[in-house]
Nucleic acid binder design. Structure first.
Length: 222
DNA sequence: CTCTGATCATTA
DNA sequence: TAATGATCAGAG
């Protein structure tokens, strides 16, 4: 629907044009149907925003705005601006990990520049009435970068050493590893405790809600 | 199946 | 009620 934005300024300009509007108003402008609820099409809000802002990558494993190196994330918030959910980052690689460094990891690359679009998303509010907030571009500062790197290295070390099935969502301070699959029967290859190949649930990296809460507070003030 | 977009729903 | 583990839809 929208052309990809030429530069960051143009992207932010588009965000400001929709800030304050409801999802229903934006869907109407683009003549799109919103699902009755998110129980089935959980990703529809993100996909609507991708369309409106001109993201081009679809389901490919690369930033939403490749030319700008920017990743788009809608973030559901309550009336106080607190995140209601953790934020998915990317799938976790479980094999062929030799020599993979933080700097070249997908987590580091995707999080180098993230356009967060807050959406008021308390469950009591019908989807069409949910209001889009003021987007902001986040780049991790030195401290945030260090926290992310620490968690990533700890989690990856466990994966390399065959400890993936011991990893719980509670691991990590700001980054967590959780299932990322169609259901609990989906399987992918990984490394077992004895170094042998095993089948396990696919996992993804997520930013904990407490971390994104801090980013929102940093942006908008407590 | 893998990866994208995420939120749901049960547990602790 | 927050957090963890489970799940849904679409593109490729």
């Amino acid at each position: 629907m929208s052309h990809p934005p030429k530069n960051t300024a143009e992207l932010l300009e588009r965000c400001y044009l929709i800030a304050g509007l409801t999802l229903g108003q934006v869907a109407e402008q683009y003549q799109l149907q919103l699902p009755a609820n998110l129980q089935r099409e959980k990703g529809s809000v993100g996909q609507l925003l991708e369309l409106v802002l001109g993201a081009s990558s679809g389901s490919k494993a690369q930033p939403d705005f490749p030319h700008l190196g920017i990743e788009l994330k809608t973030i559901p918030v309550d009336r106080h601006g607190k995140p209601l959910e953790s934020t998915y980052v990317c799938v976790a690689p479980l094999t062929d990990l030799a020599g993979l460094s933080w700097q070249e990891s997908w987590v580091c690359r995707k999080l180098s520049a993230v356009l967060f679009v807050p959406v008021l998303a308390e469950r009591s509010i019908p989807l069409a009435q949910r209001q889009i907030g003021t987007a902001f571009l986040w780049k991790p500062d030195t401290e945030q970068q260090a926290l992310l790197q620490q968690d990533w290295e700890e989690l990856m070390e466990l994966i390399v050493l065959g400890g993936i099935d011991q990893i719980k969502g509670a691991h990590g301070k700001v980054l967590q590893l959780r299932p990322k699959a169609a259901n609990s029967k989906a399987l992918t290859s990984a490394v077992g405790a004895e170094g042998q190949p095993i089948q396990t649930l696919p996992r993804g990296f997520y930013l904990k809600a407490s971390f994104t809460a801090a980013l929102l507070a940093q942006q908008f003030g407590t």
